[in-house]
Design a protein around this nucleic acid. Structure first.
Length: 912
RNA sequence: GCCCAUGUGGCGGAAUUGGUAGACGCAGCAGACUCAAAAUCUGCCAUUCGCAAGGGUGUGAAGGUUCGAUUCCUUUCGUGGGCACCA
């Protein structure tokens, strides 16, 4: 009987489906365990081999935990709102709902073929009204809440109103509040709501009449059509995530994420301590606040080294302080900056640009007149949008000073050599008046105290993180449950939700760059908000909905979320390190603060899977011709590099016939070969349809079966590591499964397994494997687990061990990795219940006890021989044995060793 | 530019606390079985010198710490990911 994986997999997938083997109950005596995948965006390209990497890993873990006796929640769904479906709709006229539906069907079909243990009865889709009803509901909670710094948590906005009514605030009295117009009151409240609207800058493309995502802007022009893109201010919605900055930082100490992941989040939040201080602009009315420039610095100790100020080009004061003489060049510079993205501004620091305003500020400590410049390396969004430049201590300031020939003041003596800045905090300050002689790191505190006592500034903690933009001028997203009346945002009634996304025929932008919803008359008449929520809205809380997916009274019953608790293991890519993970952490904290759930961190443990990259192939077309030159000869010509479908390439050799047949353009292609072959260029990049480097899992499953595919993906390498896909090795894993099969069945003789008793050698193999598989599975070290299975099967084959008592345990170990073949062989062994609910073998160390070990013997750290020595032997005995060894004696050349290092159970090193 | 990760045979990778570098697999080579093929099995497989025994070199590069470094430290180069409207 042969290993017929096609039949076996079909049989058991069907069997599990019929018996509802993966359905999970919220009511169980077993301890709960929640394993979550980052749900996919159902793109039109379908699943490629990169997607299942994390899914297989989580599937293995879920099945393993189930064997270990847990009630495992392992759901799947679709993040089905988003930009690509809308872009596709603009191109083809097909409604996003239609294409999304189709794409999901494809995804599910592909996922099912791989044999995942999802409980599909809990499936969610973020674009379904049943789901986004609660996204809207949570938005309303955010809108109706504020962050109370006293209690350090979100509270109903009513408590703030009460405060204003009874005690007022820093800026106004209770009486004043009560006398404010309703409009003014709402404006003030808007400055505290966790979801709020304010003006923000967007990428505006005049020619397309629309706002563009960063992704749609390439080299400063629109991807579609190549039109110019500029920054434009528009009214936007935001989430006040900055209020949670400190708690998001502290929360990291309570979760099990990788250090690098925590580091990325910390850097994103970017907490820095320093101070704000005012510089007065010279030759202006002194007591006019408008002409004080507030800078933020983390290095107030360098105050005597300030040689100039730099404002962000967008800074409010630029226009007012610019002198008439400089106005022309400033305006020119501002036009230039408007065309530049933040990214470009940060990245191209070597290209130093800036413009002098003509104005001077006064250093409050020494009265020095310092020039005020504007430059794009200062960003309006961070700190106060103005910096004090200290060229001797900051490299960017230094380069700027050098470029514009601004004289540099040195306050750190020999620590500054005039060729580059020195950012040290360890230098002793000079030429710094009251700070002279202090170490810089100590001077920071002294300087801040002085600044505060003079009333020209104050200590300030700053965060790099900005409030999260939460509106998009798009169609395919959640509508905001908000009406605008008289300039005031009015929340819809919660009972009226969902506010359904209306059907449209056209997906183009509305007037003035508004979203497509602005084109709908009834929507406009009701004064409903015309932008929609961003892609991350639905994904910020989906893990809660899985727990209680059908509830129509609330987003998730508190009793149910209390039962499941935090996600025990969350698996996904690092590309979400700062976006999705921070947003969902914030939403969880808000829901916790408001009492809707019982935990304030969503994910207890996070496992990052690496990205499976595509290995792209390139051909080189000689410019202006239809002639293609092989990789090695391309430098002799002027060529264009073009992606070619990896399926036409064997290694790096192009199948020129297949290429010619690929597209009509290439039908008459001519080739310049090297050594009779056309060789392609190679580059590793993201796997993507547009790069023609995708590999479809369906083909592999068809050819080798799901079990082989699952194990091969795991065998590729460590789960957290990125690696390019290569199908070459899959044969090896398939051979392994066939070899396993032959332990049970002979192709000719049929059944070969027996019920004999196991020998010590066989039990030793089994228990070593149990130990290794169990710890590798716990640690997500699946590549080494697969190799341990191979070692085990190789050894059992060598021993011709066909014993049921060994093999059935091996099957249980294997079930999480290769469920179909395990279930099949399990039943062949005579079991009548599913292997899914077997119980995990228990490791017994007594089978592995050894009495001696072959010790590696090194001379000066270099391995020279091995000697079998009793494990119980102590240093003196070992020394004697080692020194009497022939090879050791040869190296000693009759001398006594200087030292003998003996690490019991590990090694011996003789130092001569 | 900034942040994070990463670099080991022809290839994917292993070496979990500093202790035998190259497990396991792919590809390759030689052989067995076969009329033949497939499948399967056996052996070889970092590099260099050597008939062999054995020796030298070797974990991106350069230094350092240590009896001993793929592992720790410093410097440096390459590659991948993220950088706020892709999800």
């Amino acid at each position: 009987m042969e290993y017929n994986f096609i039949e076996i997999e079909k049989k058991w997938q069907n069997n599990w489906k019929v018996s509802k083997a993966y359905q999970v109950s919220n009511d169980s005596s077993k301890p709960p365990f929640y394993v979550l995948d980052m749900f996919p965006y159902p793109s039109g390209a379908g699943l490629h081999v990169g997607h299942p990497l994390g899914y297989i890993a989580s599937d293995i873990y879920s099945r393993y935990k189930r064997l270990k006796g847990f009630n495992v929640l392992h759901p799947m769904g679709f993040d089905s709102f988003g930009l690509p479906a809308e872009q596709y709709a603009i191109e083809t006229g097909q409604h996003p709902a239609t294409t999304t539906q189709k794409n999901i069907a494809t995804f599910k079909d592909q996922l099912d073929k791989i044999g995942f243990c999802y409980d599909w009865s809990r499936e969610i889709r973020t674009s379904e009204p049943d789901y986004y009803r609660w996204t809207q509901w949570i938005f309303l909670q955010l809108f109706k809440s504020w962050f109370n710094p006293q209690s350090n948590k979100a509270e109903s906005i009513q408590t703030l109103i009460q405060q204003f009514e009874t005690t007022g605030s820093e800026n106004f009295s209770a009486e004043a509040w009560n006398s404010f117009s309703k409009n003014k009151q709402q404006d003030i409240l808007m400055q505290h709501r966790l979801a709020f609207s304010a003006f923000g800058e967007v990428n505006w493309c005049e020619a397309l009449g629309t706002v563009l995502a960063n992704d749609e802007v390439v080299n400063g022009v629109s991807e579609r059509g190549g039109h110019p893109v500029i920054k434009k201010k528009m009214l936007q919605w935001y989430l006040r995530i900055t209020d949670y900055a400190d708690r998001l930082l502290e929360g990291l100490n309570t979760v099990d994420f990788s250090d690098s992941m925590k580091e990325m989040q910390r850097n994103w939040i970017g907490k820095s301590e320093g101070c704000e201080m005012d510089f007065e602009v010279a030759n202006q009315t002194v007591n006019n606040d408008a002409f004080k420039i507030k800078v933020y610095t983390t290095r107030p100790d360098t105050i005597f080294g300030v040689d100039f100020l730099v404002l962000a080009p967008e800074h409010d004061l630029v226009n007012q302080i610019t002198t008439e003489a400089q106005r022309g060049s400033i305006n020119e510079y501002l036009t230039y900056v408007k065309s530049r993205s933040d990214r470009e501004r940060m990245a191209e620091v070597k290209q130093i640009t800036g413009c002098f305003t003509g104005a001077f500020a006064t250093n409050p400590f020494n009265g020095k007149q310092i020039p005020i410049w504007i430059a794009e390396y200062v960003l309006a969004g961070y700190g106060t949008g103005a910096i004090m430049a200290v060229p001797c201590g900051d490299q960017r300031d230094f380069l700027f000073a050098q470029h514009f020939e601004i004289p540099i003041t040195n306050i750190i003596g020999s620590h500054f050599d005039g060729t580059q800045a020195n950012p040290t905090k360890e230098a002793t300050l000079q030429a710094s008046d009251f700070l002279n002689g202090l170490l810089m790191k100590d001077a920071i505190k002294v300087a801040i105290e002085k600044i505060e006592s003079l009333g020209i500034g104050k200590r300030k903690v700053n965060f790099k993180m900005r409030d999260a933009g939460f509106s998009r001028q798009r169609y395919w997203g959640e509508p905001f449950p908000i009406r605008w009346e008289d300039g005031m945002a009015i929340a819809s009634e919660e009972t009226q939700l969902p506010l359904e996304l209306p059907h449209v025929e056209k997906y183009g932008p509305g007037p003035e760059g508004e979203g497509p919803l602005a084109n709908i008359e009834s929507w406009k008449n009701e004064k409903l908000e015309t932008s929609t929520m961003p892609g991350y809205a639905g994904s910020s809380w989906y893990f809660l909905r899985y727990m209680d997916p059908k509830n129509s009274n609330t987003f998730c019953d508190k009793k149910v979320s209390d039962y499941w608790g935090q996600v025990n293991v969350y698996i996904g890519g690092t590309e979400h390190a700062v976006g999705h993970l921070l947003y969902s952490r914030m939403w969880t904290k808000v829901l916790f603060d408001l009492g809707f759930i019982g935990f304030d961190e969503p994910f207890k443990r996070l496992v990052n899977q690496g990205m499976i990259q595509g290995s792209s192939r390139f051909v080189y077309r000689i410019k202006g011709t239809n002639e293609f030159v092989s990789f090695g000869l391309k430098d002799n010509y002027e060529t264009d590099e073009l992606h070619v479908d990896v399926n036409f390439v064997d290694g790096i050799e192009l199948d020129t016939d297949a290429f010619s047949n690929w597209k009509p353009d290439y039908a008459n292609a001519r080739f310049i070969l090297e050594e009779g072959k056309y060789l392609c260029g190679v580059e590793v990049e993201k796997m993507s349809k547009s790069k023609f480097n995708t590999v479809n899992p369906d083909d592999l499953v068809l050819k080798y079966g799901a079990d082989t595919f699952r194990m091969y993906e795991m065998f590729l390498g460590p789960i957290e590591q990125s690696k390019p896909w290569d199908t070459k090795g899959i044969e090896g894993v398939h051979r392994f499964l066939r070899k396993l099969w032959r332990l049970f069945n002979d192709d000719l003789k049929g059944k070969v397994w027996n019920e004999e008793n196991a020998t010590d050698a066989e039990l030793k193999i089994l228990h070593r494997t149990i130990k290794k598989i169990e710890s590798d599975t716990e640690n997500f070290s699946y590549n080494t687990a697969v190799s341990a299975f191979m070692v085990c099967v190789n050894e059992l084959s060598d021993l011709k061990c066909h014993k049921k008592t060994i093999l059935e345990n091996l099957l249980i170990l294997l079930m999480p990795y290769a469920p179909h073949i395990s279930e099949e062989l399990w039943h062949q062994l005579g079991h009548t219940t599913s292997i899914l609910d077997a119980s995990y073998p228990i490791f017994d160390a007594s089978y592995l006890v050894e009495s001696s070990k072959s010790y590696p013997i090194s001379i000066n750290g270099k391995l020279r021989t091995n000697i079998e020595i009793l494990l119980a032997a102590e240093q003196s005995e070992v020394e004697q044995i080692v020194l009497s060894n022939e090879i050791v004696q040869k190296w000693l050349e009759g001398n006594a060793p200087k030292k003998i290092i003996f690490v019991k159970g590990k090694m011996v090193n003789v130092v001569i």
